[in-house]
């Protein structure tokens, strides 16, 4: 059973599509694993759709051309769209330390796009960068069995979603799907059991802070978390 979930505020931001990209990735991954949060998100989406229907609709006229152009998209296009996804799909796996894992959909394509998987190993902790997402950096972390993760600090926040295996710290034992948020006030030293490895997705603030661009349009993170 999944015990650690994102706050309702985060789920709300996720359903509204207003979270910063890195946080979105972590929340989406949890939601993919967690039936209960996925239902909560669906309920919030219902509310948001209801709000959408209440918006004013004064601006009618300029839409005639659009309607015509959409309706002229031929039925053949629709059939093509229908068939586009029925291609033969191979499961995609990631291999590390002699083990094989299937990744959640949220990171699958990102991993496939990478030319070879660049795993770096430091004292039993392997990491493979997935890229920068707004002011966050996402990585897959594989921790060998019986390893204690050294303390590390970030400017503000680190989010972890356990994908396989298990991890434990002073707060408890984390199983696949569990969503762990740490801010800079919390110190912890996660470790794996002697016989159990752990694969997780981590999203943390990158050393460089982005202050420009579209991210300022998105909700401030601090506001969403507390």
């Amino acid at each position: 059973m999944i015990k650690f979930h994102p706050s309702e505020r985060l789920l709300r931001g996720f359903a509204a599509g207003e979270l910063s990209s890195g946080i979105n990735l972590a929340v989406a991954t949890h939601v993919e694993y967690c039936q209960c949060c996925s239902e909560t998100v669906a309920a919030i989406e219902d509310e948001l759709a209801f709000d959408l229907c209440k918006l004013d609709d004064e601006i009618q006229s300029p839409f005639d051309d659009m309607l015509t152009s959409i309706l002229s998209a031929s039925d053949e296009t629709a059939v093509l769209a229908k068939d586009a996804f029925t291609t033969d799909k191979r499961e995609s796996f990631v291999q590390i330390d002699g083990k094989k894992f299937k990744l959640p959909r949220t990171v699958q394509r990102k991993m496939e796009r990478q030319e070879g998987q660049n795993w770096r190993n430091l004292a039993g902790i392997h990491s493979s960068a997935l890229g920068d997402f707004d002011e966050y950096r996402a990585s897959l972390i594989y921790i060998e069995p019986g390893v204690q993760v050294p303390m590390h600090k970030h400017k503000s926040i680190e989010m972890t979603v356990v994908l396989a295996g298990s991890l434990s710290d002073e707060q408890g034992v984390y199983k696949p799907g569990d969503f762990i948020v740490l801010d800079n006030n919390i110190e912890h030293s996660p470790k794996t059991q002697q016989s159990q490895c752990c694969l997780c997705l981590t999203v943390m603030d990158a050393p460089i802070q982005f202050t420009q661009g579209i991210s300022r349009l998105l909700n401030p993170i601090a506001h969403l978390l507390f």
Binding site: G17, S21, N24, L25, A28, R105, T106, V107, Q108, R109, K110, R113, G131, D132, F133, D134, G213
Partner: peptide
């Protein structure tokens, strides 16, 4: 941004 965090994912 160069990242590829598509809505479909």
């Amino acid at each position: 941004k160069k990242e590829e965090n598509f809505a479909d994912d």
